[in-house]
Design a protein around this nucleic acid. Structure first.
Lengths: 356, 356
DNA sequence: AGTGTCCATGAAAACGATTACGTTGCCGTC
DNA sequence: GACGGCAACGTAATCGTTTTCATGGACACT
């Protein structure tokens, strides 16, 4: 059973296709009765306008594309969640292309999306202005997430890594730690660089006489473990370690445990990202939390605004705040390990394990 | 700069649009030289075929739709990852609509996708055969994930919850535990029911004289905590607790800790799902692991097969195996808490059954 | 040379919607 | 009653592609 077309509806209702079209969209140009009759027939025939035919003439797909790198876990799902929620409430569809390893793959995916979407949401560490210029057909609105690109043509939405890292270091210093060390992220990574910047800024301003102490890492757990060992082997052991993401903090935690140090009594530890694991390890990890759902939502809303205004508004450059989440690992709070607590406070953030 | 159309290419190359079309798809019906010249011009003009125009005439969108409920965390991202990977390697696009709370929302999303996709991948606890019949236009291929639906029209791909739960209970019994209790999942949930079935089956076959001991839960952490308290308060405390998902196991862990019991010395604990948290809590949680990426990949491959065969092949009903992951919480292994170990590959697993 | 075959090529008809434009009929005004 | 304005409605053009069919030239064979 082929689906009904506008012609079928027109014939059945005894009008022209033009009137059907008018009745279905807004209903201006048809009498109330005619419109109603047409809509009834349409419902009876289960008529659904053919999306392709429609975009062919209107030049709108009502779809936006999300171009994402190879992301794991919570970050990805929360981001999509935010985007999807905002998209649906605007009647927009979401075409996803994720898991791009290299810049070449991303370019291919971008070309493939061309013509299928009205706009693009791009989160890809490797893209720069030239790449965009070369691969995004001019006139296709795009919003960049977490990107170093600074262009007049594209709006950018960043996490405020600098402020987040600054705030965490400030918290550690306020808690009485002076020698605060950082485990860095992979070189060239935008987030990593920003977080290092925040650390340096805070140290320079708040503990100018304390040494800057940065050991390399790559955002993976094992590098955190190795960095932790390196730090603990230093002649003057740091008071606090600020890992620039949570997974490295976890690795570092094992290094501390292995060295027989108790956290936070002997040394303080903090991370960045607030992945779900952070609150379940013991001691629970103090970290910097980013509201990823909101990031996705804002990005989509910004893109939607671009789509709706015919004249291209100037590119904006926004930043999403993040907040320090104080738990047990940085020692500034009395340790409250009562399980009871875990079941009250942040219910909303609980991870539900499986499906449904 | 409007993007170039097939006409522009034709004019520039001095041929008709028909020849351009032929040259771009397979190149049959044009001489090698002409074909090459056309492709060169196309590249020069950055010609990209208009997707909508193409689907209008070919009746193919080269897009598949994924309809998902409100999923959190790892499960969602891994599933999409698997689907996306398989889709891209087949040149298919992925239209995602997630975060549906109710059956009504899912229906709306399904209708909205109609005509934009060649096939549907549906993971939604609430859908049954009638719902599908009513909302999926006949002739649109669909593959159901993790669904109780048993229909001739739709292929179904399930996780082998029964075998997974059975294997876990068997493992606990083999490790010397006799009074194995289960924390159930939410009533009406397909996964939950299957896991309970596996538990009952294993108990009946492997420890027929031990009591069946099931306390209610709802897959959330807190219900696991409460269930744990209830179990520990029983006159004859169980030897082992099998929570039907990991989050409840985590909750139960806190209940045990609160009661002053050490795991696994005093009582064994196991979960289901193998969420990332499972390996980071201490003691590391033994659980049943589902290779979600493969689930997504298989689902897409099955759907793709449906799309490619013109005559509708009979609906299949496959099951994805899952494996028991033995860690520390069930006490069958010497406890190896060396952090070093965490950085190597996964621990010993054994497979339960079902095909990939 | 005549004839048939094959093949590259172009012209034109789809596909299913939107929309500019023309036609019609109604109503009010002088 | 002629005329203008307006609203409802139909006709037809249009979007960019694929595909069927017709055409004509090259070539081989008799």
């Amino acid at each position: 059973m082929a689906t009904a077309t506008i012609k079928d509806v027109a014939r059945e209702a005894g009008v022209s296709v033009a009137s059907v079209s008018r009745a279905m969209n807004g209903g201006r140009g048809v009498t109330i009765e005619t419109g109603q009759r047409i809509r009834e027939v349409a419902k009876k025939l289960r008529y659904i306008p053919h999306a392709a035919a429609r975009t062919l003439i209107t030049r709108r797909t009502n779809t936006i594309g999300a171009l994402l790198p190879d992301l794991y876990g919570e970050f990805f799902s929360e981001l999509i969640r935010g985007i999807d929620l905002a998209a649906r409430s605007r009647g927009l569809h979401l075409l996803v292309s994720s898991s791009h390893d290299g810049i070449e793959e991303a370019a291919a995916a971008m070309r493939a999306m061309q013509g299928r979407v009205d706009g693009l949401l791009i989160l890809s560490p490797g893209v720069d202005a030239d790449f965009l210029e070369a691969n995004v057909s001019a006139g296709l609105p795009a919003v960049l997430l977490n990107s170093a690109v600074n262009s007049d043509h594209y709006s950018v939405l960043n996490i405020d890594n600098v402020a987040g890292a600054y705030a965490m270091v400030k918290h550690l210093i306020d808690a009485g730690h002076r020698n605060v060390a950082q485990i860095a992220g992979p070189p060239g990574n935008f987030d990593a660089e920003q977080r290092e910047l925040g650390y340096r800024k805070a140290m320079a301003e708040l503990a100018p006489d304390a040494p800057i102490n940065i050991v390399p890492g790559d955002f993976m757990e094992e590098s955190g473990y190795l960095a932790g060992r390196a730090l603990l082997a230093q002649p003057s052991r740091p008071d606090a370690i600020f890992a620039s993401n949570d997974m490295m903090a976890v690795g570092c935690l094992y290094a501390c445990r292995e060295a027989g140090l108790e956290i936070p009594r002997d040394i303080a530890l903090a991370g960045f990202d607030d992945i779900p694991i952070a609150r379940y390890i013991s001691p629970a990890l103090s970290t910097v939390s980013v509201r990823i759902v909101d990031l996705g939502r804002s990005a989509l809303e910004q893109l939607a605004a671009l789509l709706e205004s015919p004249e291209r508004p100037p590119a904006t450059n926004q930043t999403m705040g993040c907040e320090v989440v104080v738990r047990e690992s940085c020692g500034s709070e009395r340790r409250s390990q009562l399980p009871k607590k875990r079941h009250t406070a942040n219910q909303a953030n609980f991870v539900t394990g499986g499906q449904s």
